[in-house]
Structures are given as C-alpha cells and as structure tokens.
C-alpha cells in the first residue's frame, strides 16, 4: 500500500458516496446512467468473487464489500425506488457492445486461463469502458449537474491515481501487471475530455455544458 493507491481508493469511495448521497438527498437519479451503474455492478461482482476464496486483508475485504453493496444499492435506486426519475430516454448506449468484446478479450488475453482469473480479467477490461454510457448520456443532453460532475471527477481520478501507484510499485518492487496497466490507462484517457471541462468550467462555478 502506498499513498497513490490509498488516495485512489479514497477517491473511488468518495465517488460512490457522492453518487448515493446525491440520489438519496434529491430523491432523484436524473442525469445518471443506469447502464453505467449496471456495468459497474457487473465489474465488481466479477472481480470480487475472490472474496470467498482469497483473503488479502481486512482493508481489502471491507472495501470490496462496500463497493459491491453500494453498486447494488445504486441500481436499486435507479431501477426500483426512484425509477420515475430515471432519464431512460437519454440512456441509450448499447452495453452489449462493451460487454461482449470484454468477454472475448478476457478469454483471449489473460494471465491464466482459469475461471476466476478470466472473470478478473473481464472485470478489468469492462471497467475501463464502463463509464461510456454515462459520458454518452452527458454528451447527449449536453450538460451535467455539478454534483454529477464531482462524481465523475472522483471516479475518473481513482484509476488515474492507480497509474501513479503502478509506477511506484514498479519502481519499488519491480512489480507490474500489464493487463491492469493498459486497461487503467485506457480508462483514464476516456475521462480526459471530461477532466478538461471540469477544471475549466465546474471548478469556476459554471455548469458543465458542452459546446453546442
């Protein structure tokens, strides 16, 4: 555990809390892509199945459980409790175009052809693109509420901070995982355009609005 990894995890935790608290407080999931949330639930479920087989640390177990519970709670809010506020007309990204290539790639490029390892690899590939339905929704509506922007910023920062963690781990332990690194870089690059808008607009108190 290094400071980049810890900050990355905290950033992820903050993102999850921002999202849940936004939905709960406003009693609305307007502007949130249910499809991205379904993909994240799939990602955490596939990756954290090792909860039952491998014990890493109390921290590790605790965080995994939090991310699993929060992703299912978010889905429950979007598709059940606050479904009347779900903006389904703008959430039209075809997620099979993300899931199927991730499955295929995980079957072809993995560290070890075993059930848990392929699922782990699938989750890494899928996570790298899971935010696309949300970004697509923002680009379709042309704007995002600032709280949604804060959520996206925290969520995007998490994998960005992991990149620094991987650089640090390579330097200090000669340890690296090429699958996680490539996918993590792809994931972070997808947020770049958003990061730019966040810094130039949202942080200056303006609404995140895309140029017409």
């Amino acid at each position: 555990m290094n400071v980049f990894r810890l900050l990355g995890d905290l950033s992820h935790l903050i993102a999850v809390i921002i999202l849940l608290q936004k939905i709960w407080h406003t009693r609305s999931c307007a502007g949130i892509s249910g499809k991205s949330q379904v993909l994240f639930a799939l990602v955490y479920t596939a990756r954290y199945l090792d909860l039952v087989s491998t014990y890493v640390s109390l921290y590790n177990t605790f965080m995994k459980v939090i991310f699993l519970i929060s992703s299912y709670a978010t889905i429950y809010f979007i598709y059940m409790k606050f479904r009347a506020t779900y903006d389904r007309n703008h959430d039209t990204f075809r997620i099979e175009f993300l899931i199927l290539p991730s499955v295929l790639l995980a079957l072809l490029i993995n560290h070890q052809f075993s059930f848990l390892e392929v699922l782990w690899t699938f989750s890494i590939y899928l996570e790298s693109v899971a935010i696309l339905p949300q970004l697509f929704m923002v680009s379709k509506t042309g704007e995002a509420e600032s709280i949604t922007s804060h959520y996206l910023f925290a969520l995007g920062s998490y994998r960005g901070l992991y990149i620094f963690n991987w650089i640090y781990r390579y330097w200090s332990e000669q340890h690296y995982d090429i699958i996680a690194i490539v996918a993590g870089v792809v994931q972070t690059v997808l947020y770049c355009d958003f990061f730019y808008l966040y810094v130039t607009k949202v942080l200056k108190g303006k609404k995140l609005q895309l140029p017409a």
Binding site: N60, K64, H111, D177, A180
Partner: peptide, 10 residues
C-alpha cells in the same frame, strides 16, 4: 508480470 499477487488491488 504477476499471477494472482496483484489482486490485492481493488
């Protein structure tokens, strides 16, 4: 590379 050991990450 790794195998398994990086799965300490989240």
């Amino acid at each position: 590379g790794k195998d398994g050991d990086l799965h300490d990450e989240l």
